Simulated scan of single mutants.
Amino acid sequence: MNEVISTILNHRSLRHFEDQPLTDEQIKTIVSCAQAAPTSSFVQAYSIIGVKDQERKRKLAEIAGNQEYVAINGHFFVFCADLYRHQLIGEHHQKEVLPSIQSTEKFMVALIDAALAAQNAAIAAESMGLGICYIGGIRNNLEEVKQLLKTPERVIPLFGIAVGYPTKLTGQKPRLPFEHIYHEDEYEQDQEVYLEQLKEYDELISNYYRDRTGGKRTDSWTEQMAAMLEKQSRMYMKDFVQKNKMDLR
């Protein structure tokens, strides 16, 4: 197993960091690795906002549900879907690009581009001995995040990544079984097989929590998912996206 694969397979979300900033060279390396990710048709429909200002980080931490590690870390990156520059390109070349920019397809391209770039950044950071944690909680209030980061129309902050020197290592949560994720030639639709795989995974996750908490927690993965999905969260998202002129046509 080479070092790249070892780094990827060793991933775990870390939430306790030293209050020590990354160097400018480390930040540039991580962003350069993000930019090396594949991008659909070379569109490069994303931007990354690095947040150094401690007051901004504190406000982002509050928005994200008072997550302390959003404020205390080595650096906080916010990944954005970005079609603003493409609007300017159309204006510069006097081409009618808005119908394309406002399509669901280009919105998906921007989301995918940002996600690919972010994962490259995450792997790069971890390969440097740093810890990372993705932060979706900034979507709790994107209007406030946009004002805080001064993003223009056609730019949607999607998630953050807290990066830093870890002070506490956590266990690695077992993922779904390979056979449940990987389908050969066609999607497995035998519900008995499907549910049996989930049952086995539930037992694995329950045992993981039991061992980790000394028996204080034993819930299964499907119990977690059912409880989470029963609660409607961030239901404002469609209106927010359309308000920011990504109309999803």
Rank of each mutant, 00 (worst) to 15 (best):
G74E: 04
E143L: 08
F76Q: 03
L111S: 02
P157G: 00
E68C: 09
G129F: 14
E186K: 08
A115M: 03
R154F: 02
A122Y: 07
E184I: 01
K106E: 06
I63P: 11
L83H: 05
Y182W: 08
Y187M: 00
A64T: 12
T170M: 13
A125Y: 08
L111Q: 03
Y134M: 09
E91Y: 14
K95Y: 06
K57L: 06
L116M: 06
I89C: 09
H180M: 10
Q67G: 10
E105V: 02
V109E: 00
A162E: 05
Y46Q: 08
I123Y: 11
V78A: 07
V109W: 01
Q119P: 04
H75A: 05
E68L: 09
Y69H: 13
P152Q: 12
T104K: 05
E186W: 08
Q54M: 12
D185E: 09
K57D: 07
H183Y: 01
E62G: 11
K95W: 10
A118D: 06
Y69A: 06
Q87N: 06
A162V: 01
E96D: 14
C133T: 07
A118I: 03
T104V: 01
I181R: 14
V51C: 07
A125M: 03
K173L: 10
I181L: 15
K95C: 02
K57G: 05
I112C: 01
E184N: 04
G171N: 13
G160P: 08
G131F: 10
K106C: 02
T104G: 05
I112A: 01
E62D: 14
Y84V: 00
K52R: 15
E192Q: 10
I123N: 14
L149C: 05
T167V: 05
G131D: 11
E91I: 08
I132M: 11
I161S: 04
G90W: 12
H183N: 10
D53F: 10
G137I: 06
V163S: 03
Y187T: 04
I181F: 12
H86A: 00
Q102E: 05
L83Q: 08
S103F: 01
N140E: 13
E192M: 07
P166A: 15
G50R: 13
L130R: 09
V109Q: 02
